[in-house]
Design a protein around this nucleic acid. Structure first.
Lengths: 230, 230
DNA sequence: CAACTATTCAATAAATCAGTTGAATAGAAG
DNA sequence: CTTCTATTCAACTGATTTATTGAATAGTTG
């Protein structure tokens, strides 16, 4: 909170200290699971407070407070339109940061691996398909791409040619799928369970299903083509 | 801390919740300035507890406790040798994560820019030189590279051809420098003040001095050549 | 202008965290 | 075996964090 200006020797320690304290503010914003979940939702696109409260299962007041912490840390920006306040990530580098965090946790925290393996029975058998490989196959119409996110998120941007099939509508769409053609599902990010779940169910039905590497935010950030609207 | 195994519907929420809680543990480790400073020191190489306590200005007990939090978050590993316990980063991806954190803070937290500008008078006038550009010039012997870190850190690894000149010895080395040849200084990382300070002083003396982009950990991680020893 | 809505603010209790101090441990050296 | 040293553990205080609750605010709608 304190700040003095000078270029003398003795300032160095305090400058350094203050600087690390600022970095720590960003770290602190990432130190709570609910906030990380909010960030993941925001990585899909702009969202209102009530909407975020609903998907995250938090109270509106609590959600609002977390969002303000995120804003103070510089991770999100807000925009007011009539009654509603819309929040969004303050830049694409936030996605990079979140992926770095996920990656480190995945590689170095033993519990994460245990969790993932426990839930997914055998994660490796799901062999995620890399983004650029998928793009190649989409071009040649070799795969059906399923976007298993809710319609709003789909409308805000999705992989070109993808079909929006929210998880609970999966059963109805089963007949329309060619059992010979490979299906690739994706959702919000590398650990979004929707895609895992969709692939598991499709496989149960005997379809050739795989998961796309990571999720839509990473696809977009990689500079790959994006389609919008219905 | 809790964990149940199942692949049913109802597990999804809790799985997701647990997963974000794990990621948050890593975030929490990054939520304290002292821990970030310790990580920066460790990015230079392996260090003992007492050494870390000394450079960071914390008590030994306090340092030990922070280190254990870092270990629990999977960010550092330790190794016991005789009486001493040596800590090191658990992987190069930790440096990536720290840089992502720094970058986000720099770009989105207004206070960071203010701090940097205040201390450095005019940061931009110091125009840091990119790593690969520097490597090119070193090869052709067009620049003198100064490593302004302490001798121990220099010995553990440095940019090839760099001269180790700790900041307090800078004055004595001034005469040995060719006033026509450009000097490039670097130290521990993008915000390590040592290099900023060295460049500022060299410029005062009329020398052509610049700062290298980032610091040694980033250089090493970029896969550029590293020289060791005296 | 009155009623309503989405969001934020303020106050609170329980939980967690940071830093200090002094004791406990494990290995080294005499 | 005793002494010394580097590190960790345990207990404690004060500060900070989380989530809840109810009130306050700002903007919309009738």
């Amino acid at each position: 909170m304190s700040s003095n200006a000078s270029n003398s020797q003795s300032m160095k320690g305090s400058f350094k200290h203050d600087l690390f304290a600022q970095f720590a503010r960003v770290g602190k914003a990432l130190s709570n699971g609910n906030r990380l979940e909010l960030l993941e939702f925001l990585a899909q696109g702009e969202r209102g407070v009530d909407e975020l409260a609903r998907i995250s299962g938090l109270s509106v007041a609590n959600t609002s407070q977390h969002l303000q912490q995120l804003r103070q840390a510089g991770l999100v920006l807000s925009r007011k339109e009539g009654l509603k306040v819309y929040y969004r990530l303050s830049g694409d580098d936030i996605i990079t940061l979140l992926d770095a965090l996920r990656g480190v946790a995945e590689r170095h925290v033993a519990d994460v691996e245990r969790l993932v393996n426990t839930y997914l029975t055998v994660k490796d058998s799901l062999e995620p398909i890399p983004r650029d490989e998928l793009l190649e196959r989409v071009k040649h119409d070799l795969v059906t791409v399923l976007d298993v996110r809710p319609p709003e998120e789909f409308a805000a941007g999705h992989v070109p040619g993808a079909v929006n099939v929210p998880l609970d509508e999966l059963e109805q769409h089963l007949k329309t799928l060619d059992p010979e053609q490979e299906v690739v599902a994706y959702c919000r990010g590398p650990h979004c369970v929707l895609a895992f779940d969709a692939v598991a169910r499709l496989r149960e039905k005997g379809l050739k299903a795989r998961r796309m590497q990571d999720g839509f935010p990473e696809w977009k950030q990689a500079g790959l083509p994006v389609e919008e609207g219905e």
